[in-house]
Each structure stands twice: as C-alpha cells, then as structure tokens.
C-alpha cells in the first residue's frame, strides 16, 4: 500500500544539497542568498521556510523564511540578518559552495477570494514572506494588494519613488520596493531612521492612514498578512482587532527539529478548549493573529 495515500503528511519535506548561486551583502549585516534547490522551489508556498545547516560544525540548524522561488529555474531566495553565531557562519559561505537544507516546512498563508485588498505588513527580516505573498498575488488581477515594509537598518534594496497612488499616504511617503513596483504591486516603506521617501513612524501607523482612507465597503475587503518582530506583530494584531479585520501572522521561535518532533518551538495559542501549545514549525509558522495575541 502506498503509505502517503493514507498519511498525507508523509514525504512533504525534502532534503537537498543546494549550490549557492548568489550571496549578496547589504548594510546592517543583511544578506540575500540564492540557492539551487529545485524540489523545494517546486513545493514552496508563501510562508514556507527552510531549515539550514549554516555550517557543518554546528549541532543545530537555523530556520529561515523563503522570500522568492523560481520553480522553473529551480532556485530559492532567502533574506537573513546576522543575529548570532549560526547566521554569522552562514554569512561566510561562498558562491559555488553546497548548503545542506531541508524544506519547504510549515503551514502557509492562505489568500481568500473575497478579501481582494490584502494588506501585507513586514518588519525587518519579516519582510521575505511578504514578498512571497506578493509574488503569489501578482498574477491574480482581482486583488489590489498593498505592502508596507518597516526597517530600522537600511533596506536590502535601493528604493525608488513609486508611480502607484495609494489611498491615505502622507505627503512625501513615496519610497517603494522596485521589485514590487515591477510586479504592479503598491508598496511603501517606514522607518524611524529618517530614510528618504519613508514614512517616519511604525508600520501600523502607516497602515492606519491607509485603512482610514478606504470606505467601509473597501475595508471589508482587507485581510492583513504580517511577519516581523513579536512586538510589531502584537501591534498589527491590535490594529486588526481595532478595524475588525482578519489577520494572519508568521511567527518565529528557537527551533530544533523543524518537523514537529521535539515541541521545542511552541507558542501559546487560545483554542476552544483553553490554552494550547502549538509548534511554530508544523502547526505554523502562520497562525491566526486572534489565536496568538
């Protein structure tokens, strides 16, 4: 009997030895890493992550969100920031070297048909999954997404003035991500560092400007997707509650196995039966914000 026929979770994660195709450094110890991992590229969805052996000397792997994939060319692109020992060693890996990783892992973001104004909010290294969601939306013309990205270190791309008009944007808030602009998706940037063209404030403040500029009918069409630091996600969840909007958040936590075996990466969620500990790796990383915050 085919095992996977009765156990659909089986064989959903693939181990690959992936050649590093590009590994570019940006200010603030940020890196964009492109690797040749065709099976993962073929299977990944927005919200999926990979578990990487940053260096063979480390006993544990590091989970990193997928930013983009090209299923046809077989590459996977990641954005990460050096945060500790593991990512510092990853940053030293050179183009042409092989990276040991497995994926794609996790419950992805779900885009709903009746929510045609997805509001994507990414902070810092929480930006990549938002790019992936935008990538999935770009060919679906019924959607009018808006992406807000916040960072307190320079963005890992050169922003440019947007030509797409977005409701409610304060004067001078014109900086956007060129890749999204090329896809025909509106984006704006926020920072407290005074970067040109950026909104001087938090992602949630700019989101309020946007939501307040929509009429009631338009607001009914909004669903929030978010990834970033926990404090930011908490603020995003508060915003969603204030405007009574559905909201999906992608979480992170220290992780060992990344396949649901060790229960090391749990987050407390509210359920009908009271509090429960859910694994970020396979029960998430995407959760309903209302169950977490």
């Amino acid at each position: 009997m085919n095992q996977t026929a009765t156990k659909p979770h089986r064989d959903t994660i693939v181990c690959e030895q992936a050649e590093i195709l590009c590994h570019d450094a940006f200010e603030g110890e940020q890196y964009i890493l492109r690797i040749q991992a065709p099976e993962i590229a073929r299977r990944a969805l927005a919200g999926s992550f990979v578990h990487i052996q940053c260096d063979p000397s480390l006993p544990m792997r590091r989970p990193i969100s997928i930013m983009r994939v090209d299923a046809k060319a077989g590459w996977v692109e990641l954005l990460y920031k050096v945060f500790g020992h593991g990512t510092a060693l990853l940053a030293k890996r050179q183009v042409g070297e092989q990276l040991d990783l497995f994926g794609p892992i996790g419950v992805p973001f779900v885009i709903h048909e009746n929510k045609t104004r997805p509001l994507l909010i990414g902070g810092g290294v929480g930006i990549p999954p938002m790019i992936f969601v935008a990538d999935e939306l770009k060919t679906q013309k019924q959607y009018t997404p808006f992406v807000i990205m916040g960072s307190e270190v320079p963005f890992p791309f050169k922003s440019k003035p947007s030509t797409v008009i977005v409701p409610g944007q304060p004067d001078g808030v014109i900086g956007c991500m060129p890749l999204l602009e090329d896809w025909g998706i509106a984006s704006r940037l926020t920072s407290k560092q005074g970067y040109p063209g950026c909104f001087d404030g938090y992602v949630t403040d700019l989101a309020k400007h946007y939501l307040d500029a929509l009429n009631d009918e338009q607001r009914q069409e909004v669903e929030i997707f978010s990834c970033g630091p926990t404090v930011m996600l908490e603020a995003v969840a508060k915003l969603a509650k204030e405007y009574e909007l559905p909201c999906q958040v992608s979480l992170e936590e220290h992780m060992a196995c990344a396949v649901g075996g060790c229960a090391g990466c749990v987050v407390e969620v509210k359920t009908e039966n009271g509090p429960a500990m859910k694994r970020v790796c396979v029960d998430g990383p995407v959760f309903d914000a209302y169950s977490v915050f």
């Binding site: 156990k7 979770h9 994660i13 181990c15 196995c257 396949v259 649901g260 075996g261 060790c262």
Partner: peptide
C-alpha cells in the same frame, strides 16, 4: 523519546 513526537513526525521527511 522527546525527539520524534508521537512517532509520525519524521515521516514528513522524504527518504
């Protein structure tokens, strides 16, 4: 015990 959940978790991994 403690590394593999309740027995099925690692079967997610192909191979």
């Amino acid at each position: 015990s403690g590394c593999v959940g309740f027995g099925e978790e690692y079967t997610r991994v192909q191979g």
